[in-house]
Simulated scan of single mutants.
Amino acid sequence: MSSRRKPSRRTRVLVGGAALAVVGAGVVGTVAAHASDSTGAVPAAAPAAARPGDLTRSTHLTVRAAEKAARAALDAAVKDGRQVSVAVVDRNGDTLVTLRGDGAGPQSYESAERKAFTAVSWNAPTSELTGRLAQAPTLKDIPGTLFLAGGTPVTAKGAPVAGIGVAGAPSGDLDEKYARAGAAALDR
């Protein structure tokens, strides 16, 4: 039996990104080496410009706002005497801020990130999403998700811009209460 832990999502992304960069550098170098003309000079590449109709805009929560939300969620839990971890992810599910409260369990860190990711992915509190598992039990198999109460989305103009996840309280209802406290801090 192996005691090796599965690498975290962040580690897998970093390792994959590094491997992609190495492969990309090799491809670019190979193309550049074969792109010279008869004088041996490499022609300058013209920058590609995307047409306005080919672009979309998205809104993202700032790091400052993410820190404010995470701090408010953690403070609400501490006020109730709870040891939790809080994570705030952006619209793409990338972690902006994670706070591990004093005494929070080791599992709470990743659970908070996954709850935040799940909330922003479906633009719904994770407590509501747990009900969907009855109709579609394989939803829980989607990588990076956690269908337990404790995550809430943050929206702007009806669209999700972030997710806040909390884990470590004795119940998901409390986790979600603290996540909502973090989201409410953004309205002030």
Rank of each mutant, 00 (worst) to 15 (best):
R51L: 14
V13S: 11
T138Q: 15
T59I: 14
L74Y: 04
S36R: 15
Y109Q: 14
S85W: 01
K115R: 15
P137M: 06
A185R: 10
V84H: 01
W122L: 13
I164C: 03
G131C: 01
V23H: 07
A156K: 14
G101V: 00
W122D: 02
S171G: 05
T56D: 10
T138P: 01
S108Q: 04
A87E: 02
A87V: 01
L129Q: 04
G150A: 06
T155L: 11
L148W: 02
T30N: 15
L61V: 09
A70T: 04
V78I: 03
A183H: 03
G17R: 07
A136I: 06
T98S: 11
A87C: 04
V22L: 15
A41H: 14
S171C: 07
P106C: 00
G168E: 02
D54Y: 02
R71M: 07
A49N: 09
P143T: 02
A162Y: 00
A69V: 03
R64V: 13
D94A: 04
D187H: 13
T56L: 06
G24T: 15
L61W: 01
T98M: 10
P106V: 10
S8V: 10
S171Y: 04
Q83T: 04
G26Q: 15
A162V: 01
P137K: 10
Q107N: 14
T118C: 13
S38Q: 14
P47C: 09
N92L: 10
R51N: 10
E113A: 12
L14M: 14
D173G: 13
P137Y: 10
G24I: 13
V13H: 12
D90S: 07
V42S: 11
